[in-house]
Design a protein around this nucleic acid. Structure first.
Length: 351
DNA sequence: AATTCCGTCAACCGCATTACC
DNA sequence: GGGTAATGCGGTTGACGGAAT
C-alpha cells in the first residue's frame, strides 16, 4: 500500500500557514477548484504537500466554515451524536453544518469530554462512571445498562448498513434517472425503488424506547419501525419483531427501505452478532428491552447535568429535576437525536 | 516583570479505505 | 486479483496566548 511521501523527504514547508500561502491557495482553488491535491501545490506555487493544502482548505479556508464559540445546541448535538457514533468525527460533523471534524474533535477533547468527566459520566461510554448509582435502586439495572450498550451497538451497526444502502441507492438512482430519461414508462417502478431512501428514518427503535410508558407515542414509533409492514400495536412487539428475531427484523427493513440488500449488509460485524448471541436473543426478548427507568437516569445524567453546568456557568441555579422534569429531559434527549436524524443532510454518510 | 503552568487549536502523522491501472 | 496512488480519517503534537505564581 503506497503512502504519500513525507513532506520532509521532499523538502517541503511545514508548520503554520502564512497569510501569503493562504492567499495563494485560496486564489488557486477559487479559480480552478482543488482537483488533485497532490498536483495542487506545484500549480498554485506553494512549497507544501498536497495533504497540508487539503487540510488547510477543509479546516480553515473553506468559505462555508463557521468559526467561534459553539452554541448550546451544537454542544448537545455533539454529545448526543458522540453517544451514538463514538469518535466518528466526520460523521458527527455532517450534522453540524459549517463545523469541521477537526474543530469538533478539538472541542470535544478540550471542553465536552472534561465536562462530562466532571459530572461523573464516562465520556467514552456516556454512562455514569459509578454504576452503583444505578444498581443500588434495582439489582437488574446493570443488566439494563448492558442492554443499552448492546442496543447502541446494534443501532450503530444498523446505521452503517443504512449508510451502505444510501450509497447503493444513489447508484441505483443515478442509473434509473438516466434510464427514465430514455424509458419514461418505467418511471413509477423506479421511483418506488428509491423513494424510501431519502432522509433515512433511523433510530426508530430509540424513538420507541423514548415512548416507553407513553402508549400513543410508542404506537407511533412502532408504525415507524415496522414501516410498511403494519402496526403491531405495542412498543414491545415492535422491538420484539424487529430486533429480537433476526429474520423478521431484516425483512422489516427490507420492506421499509425497499432496496435489495443482503443479510451480510446488515449483520456483517461478527462481534456484534456474538454480542447478541450470548445474550439469549432467541429467548425472552423482553430481556433486551431497556427499562424506561434506566434510560431516564442515563439521559438525565447526560443532559440535565450538562445544562445545569451551563446554567451554573451563567450564574443560574442548577435544576436536578423532580419527576416531570426528569421525564421531560429524557424525552427531549431522544427527541433531539431524532430531530437531528430527520433533519440530516441528504448526503450524510450515516443518516 | 519574569517565569511557569495550562488550555486551546492548527497542523502533522500514519493507518485505513477507495480508486485506478 | 494485485499493486500503487490518492484521499479520508482519527489520534497526537507543539506553538501560542493568557492566567497564575
Amino acid at each position: 500500500m503506497g503512502r504519500s511521501p513525507c513532506c520532509d523527504k521532499l523538502g517541503l514547508k511545514k508548520g503554520p500557514w502564512t497569510p501569503e500561502e493562504d492567499q495563494k491557495l485560496l486564489a488557486y482553488i477559487e479559480e480552478h477548484g482543488h482537483g488533485s491535491w497532490r498536483a495542487l501545490p506545484i500549480k498554485a506555487g506553494l512549497q507544501r504537500c498536497g495533504k497540508s493544502c487539503r487540510l488547510r482548505w477543509t479546516n480553515y479556508l473553506r468559505p462555508d466554515i463557521k468559526r467561534g464559540k459553539f452554541s448550546l445546541q451544537e454542544e448537545q448535538t455533539i454529545i448526543q451524536l458522540h453517544a451514538l457514533l463514538g469518535n466518528r468525527w466526520s460523521a458527527i460533523a455532517t450534522h453540524l453544518p459549517k463545523r469541521t471534524d477537526n474543530e469538533i474533535k478539538n472541542y470535544w477533547n478540550t471542553h465536552l469530554k472534561k465536562r462530562l468527566a466532571k459530572m461523573g459520566i464516562d465520556p467514552v461510554t456516556h454512562k455514569p462512571k459509578n454504576d452503583s448509582v444505578l444498581t443500588s435502586t434495582d439489582g437488574g439495572q446493570s443488566k439494563n445498562a448492558a442492554n443499552l450498550s448492546h442496543m447502541a451497538q446494534w443501532e450503530s451497526a444498523r446505521l452503517e448498513a443504512e449508510a451502505r444502502l444510501v450509497r447503493q441507492s444513489k447508484l441505483i438512482s443515478t442509473f434509473s434517472n438516466s434510464f427514465q430519461a430514455q424509458k419514461p414508462e418505467f418511471a413509477t417502478t423506479s421511483s418506488t425503488i428509491h423513494k424510501p431512501v431519502g432522509p433515512a428514518r433511523c433510530l426508530d427503535v430509540l424513538k420507541s424506547w423514548n415512548g416507553w410508558g407513553d402508549a400513543t407515542e410508542a404506537a407511533n414509533a412502532s408504525v415507524s419501525v415496522v414501516g410498511i409492514g403494519g402496526d403491531l400495536g405495542s412498543p414491545t412487539s415492535t422491538l420484539s419483531s424487529s430486533v429480537c428475531d433476526g429474520g423478521t427484523m431484516k425483512e422489516d427493513w427490507k420492506q421499509q427501505l425497499q432496496v435489495p440488500f443482503s443479510t451480510e449488509d446488515l449483520l456483517d460485524t461478527s462481534s456484534f452478532q456474538s454480542t447478541w448471541a450470548t445474550e439469549s436473543v432467541t429467548g425472552n426478548c423482553s430481556e433486551h428491552v431497556p427499562s424506561g427507568n434506566f434510560v431516564e437516569k442515563f439521559t438525565d445524567l447526560l443532559l440535565s447535568n450538562s445544562s445545569a453546568g451551563r446554567r451554573s456557568e451563567d450564574g443560574g441555579e442548577s435544576d436536578n429535576g423532580g419527576g416531570s422534569d426528569y421525564y421531560e429531559n429524557n424525552k427531549n434527549y431522544w427527541d433531539n437525536i431524532l430531530n437531528l436524524v430527520n433533519s440530516s443532510p441528504p448526503d450524510s454518510p450515516i443518516f
